[in-house]
Nucleic acid binder design. Structure first.
Length: 125
DNA sequence: CCATAAGAGCGTCAACGATT
DNA sequence: AATCGTTGACGCTCTTATGG
């Protein structure tokens, strides 16, 4: 199959949401899913719904219907893949910022511990 | 410059779980 | 059982960084 040549369109849109991967959750055990329902699944412009299957008869019509179904499915999957990748990037970003916060927190706790040790340790001279 | 390695994004396929 | 949405994997193109 010939792959279409496509233009790269750096169209990253940033939205802040809390998310975790659905399948990855199995690996990590305790993370919530990052799956979020898209509010609508509106079809892009130019997509026309087919006539009801009952009205198709000839092999020609059946072939056209099959082609149309395949193209529709490819188009939907294309959009789904984009959305999936967007969510995954968002999820990774969330994790990274959480790591940053926890590292700061950890550092503070270590410092506090050292301070308390100094206070509590018996003086030797 | 030019070659090329690395990284990012994309489209497609396949597999899976959920829904009808 | 059929259909649908989601996502990992793969192969591809394009961009960017880097060494000669």
């Amino acid at each position: 199959m010939q792959k279409p040549i496509m233009a790269v369109t750096g169209d990253d849109t940033d939205k802040e949401t809390e998310l975790a991967p659905r399948h990855m959750a199995a690996a990590t055990g305790d993370m919530p899913t990052y799956q979020i329902r898209a509010p609508t699944t509106a079809l892009p412009q130019g997509v026309v719904m087919a006539a009801s299957p009952g009205s198709l008869h000839s092999p020609q019509q059946l072939a056209e219907e099959a082609t149309r179904k395949r193209e529709l499915r490819l188009m939907k999957n294309r959009e789904a893949a984009k959305e999936c990748r967007r969510r995954k990037k968002e999820y990774v970003k969330c994790l990274e910022s959480r790591v940053a916060v926890l590292e700061v927190q950890n550092k503070k706790l270590i410092e506090e511990l050292e301070t308390l040790k100094d206070i509590c340790s018996p003086k030797t001279d």
